[in-house]
Amino acid sequence: MAKVLLFGPLRDLAGWRERNFDGVADLAGLMARLDPELALAVNGPGVQVAVDKAIVRGDASLGPRSEVAFLPPMSGG
């Protein structure tokens, strides 16, 4: 089970902040399970992906307790 976190405008778009996904082995598999509109948005310009709080590029394998965060362009403080 992977825990997925959404931030900023992605959270508003999806209507949720945190959700668990069972049976996903990698990021590609997780992407395929997202609603099409959200999947499009997380692949949009400037969106970064963090697995267990480390930025990853491309696909990454996910463990049973992985935390995946989709980070839209940051606003700064």
Binding site: G8, P9, L71, M74, S75, G76, G77
Partner: peptide, 19 residues
């Protein structure tokens, strides 16, 4: 901090709210 820090900021006002 102002340009790169991992924060997401939404502005609230009479005209609504936006990131």
């Amino acid at each position: 901090l102002k340009s790169q820090a991992p924060f997401w900021k939404k502005q609230h006002g009479p005209g609504g709210e936006h990131w």
